[in-house]
Design a protein around this nucleic acid. Structure first.
Lengths: 262, 262
DNA sequence: TCGTGTAATTGACGCAGATCAATTCAGGAA
DNA sequence: TTCCTGAATTGATCTGCGTCAATTACACGA
């Protein structure tokens, strides 16, 4: 099994960077105290497997920092990423006993963990956690549907452009809610932004349903065409976000800016 | 807008075919009475649009009978199905104001509808509905992840075989829970089954991220190879389910038989 | 600073599935 | 039954992405 990395220093929930976005976001003081007493941290290095598909699920967790990947694999080794887990995202399902996919660390990752059983009990008792979990699950389902459109119908170039737009947007949201730079993201001005890719080319190919070579070629093509610029392999800057969005081929960025708030 | 079809006879929840699977499955008598007083039915003919993407969402609904499709479309018309809605499946999201995708009827469809606002209020008040909705949403997310693996990494032949397996399995589950034949499904013996396809070839191509021609060719190939037999265009029989599952290429049907029950 | 191993790029070529174009088939109306 | 119309099949050809195979670039430790 896999919970193999040294735990490290506890952090107070008060100062937790994902306090207002994670599954605990809506908790009242008493619920919060319960969670705080149950929680423990795990850290993983880039490349480590956090959880093998099919393994018994003894924990659920929130991603505190770093990026993790959920992947599914066919018999012959073809693999598809089915979830990209950024800070505040939740891993696990109350009541589920076995992992339906493999989870691994794309960068160094810190998780805030809870034992499955007590967490499931807590959910029964505290509607605020269940409510927030429903909200997050519905958001994830929206993202999955957009991802399906990408996988089924977009060209390789559109896939790359879409991926870059997704990363830029999600990091921008994180940076905004934390009000600090995260993972090397900077937002100097609206319309010009730059960020580090959290994934290798191989992981990008697993995300997009492409080969590593096609990913590389299309990134080169977007660079050649001036849609993006690269510093090193990982750092991307986007001189014109609208141009990138146009390359992504979506009919408009409407739809997903509809908030779930009542 | 779109709620354009004649309502028809009310049905008591007691005798509702989706009573034990839909969003109302876990309700107590009093919650149930509230739902019953709020509900109203809508029916749609095969091919009708139920809801256009971007339209204001005034209702949520459960599919009572028939099959509906959620689809997203790119500017140039490329279309991807992002949800296949069978009886008991839920349409809508509490708090969402606009439809993030188009919903249309693949067969004649009957919906059990609730106005959004009162339904959202009810959810706040009754944890059993929210719990059930969370469970259903998590199931849908599992299905979306399997679908992503299919779209990103499976060959055309594997996609067709997977689709047939999914339809067979979901209908089998429905038939089981209703204990009656549904939509022409029969289960004469374990290992030999037959059913009607609820989708046209075009809808199948939208589901699978293929063209209609490729769908047709691969169905012909599976028939030629004896994996399936056809009567007419819609009725499929599967002489050997294991053979079909092997063609679908999944590493095993493990994973998804893990129940969400505690 | 220099190696060294892994990640990424680039090129040549092949093929699965898309596209374009006829037929053929199925099922409902008269 | 026969006609008629949209759905489905089948064939010929094209092409975007995958596959195979070298380089080349980069990050990291000595």
């Amino acid at each position: 099994m896999s919970w193999a990395v040294s735990p490290s220093g506890q952090v107070s929930c008060e100062s937790c960077p994902i306090r207002h976005r994670a599954v605990c976001a809506r908790c009242e003081a008493d619920e919060f105290a319960q969670l705080e007493s149950m929680k423990f941290y795990r850290t993983y290095e880039a490349g480590q497997t956090i959880l093998f598909g099919g393994d018994p699920l003894e924990f659920v967790a929130s991603v505190v920092s770093g990026v993790a990947m959920a992947t599914r694999t066919l018999e012959d080794g073809r693999t598809q990423m089915v979830g990209l887990l950024l800070p505040s995202d939740f891993i696990g399902r109350p009541g589920r006993k076995f992992a339906p996919f493999t989870v691994s660390a794309a960068t160094d990752v810190r998780l805030c963990c809870f034992r499955s059983k007590p967490f499931a009990n807590l959910i029964e008792a505290t509607p605020h956690i269940a409510q927030r979990l429903l909200e997050m699950t519905l958001d994830e389902l929206d993202a999955a549907r957009e991802w399906m459109l990408l996988l089924g119908r977009k060209t390789a170039r559109e896939k790359i452009a879409s991926f870059l737009a997704i990363i830029a947007r999600r990091y921008a949201a994180l940076a905004q809610s934390a009000e600090v730079g995260v993972n090397g993201v900077h937002l100097p001005a609206p319309q010009k932004l730059s960020f580090d890719l959290p994934l290798t080319r191989e992981s990008m190919s697993d995300y997009l349903g492409l080969t590593i070579e096609t990913v590389s070629r299309q990134i080169s093509a977007l660079k050649r065409d001036g849609v993006i610029a690269l510093e090193g392999n990982r750092h991307v800057s986007v001189p014109n976000l609208d141009r990138l969005l146009a390359e992504a081929g979506d009919d408009s960025e409407d739809v997903l800016h509809d908030s779930a708030a009542e």
